[in-house]
């Protein structure tokens, strides 16, 4: 319940940061026209601040954050980002198999036939379809 309530406070704080820092610094000032660049963003941010505050005061619904699962999800997100970085510097042909191998090993897959399918055959199939058949460049 506390987490649920705090999520409203967090939303309101995000709204305030957007209103006083992000919107003024990342929109251009225009003094003509009916709908200026900051008009709609400001309206949406006011909505977020008001609704977030209401939720903080009168919380409804539930919020369940399992920190163990969230930690593991963060690990997989990190692996995904690392795979993206690897593809960026060394290309798809190295990045994709390494990404698949890391994910499958961490999950606990040890059967060689499935590892072979995921690490070699799937990236090769994608390369065949995209690069060879469709002539579209891969990273």
């Amino acid at each position: 319940m506390i987490l649920n309530r705090l999520s409203g406070l967090f939303a309101a704080i995000v709204g305030i940061i957007l209103l006083f820092w992000v919107i003024p610094n990342h929109t251009e000032t225009v003094d003509y026209g009916w709908l200026r660049p900051a008009t709609l963003p400001k309206i949406t941010v006011f909505i977020i601040i008001i609704a977030g505050t209401v939720h903080f005061i009168f919380p409804r619904g539930t919020a369940e954050l399992d920190f163990a699962s969230a930690g593991r999800s963060a690990l997989f997100l990190g692996i995904g980002v690392a795979g993206l970085w690897l593809m960026n510097i060394s290309g798809f042909s190295i990045g994709a198999p390494v990404l698949m191998l890391a994910l499958m090993i961490i999950i606990g897959e040890r059967r060689w036939q499935w590892l072979l399918s995921g690490v070699i055959m799937l990236p090769a199939f994608i390369w065949l379809c995209v690069d060879y058949l469709l002539k579209r460049p891969l990273p």
Partner: peptide, 18 residues
């Protein structure tokens, strides 16, 4: 089950669209 949460979410989606 929470209208306030729904409105926060809609506002955030609309903000990202800008």
């Amino acid at each position: 089950d929470s209208m306030a949460k729904g409105i926060v979410t809609a506002g955030l989606g609309l903000f990202c669209a800008t």
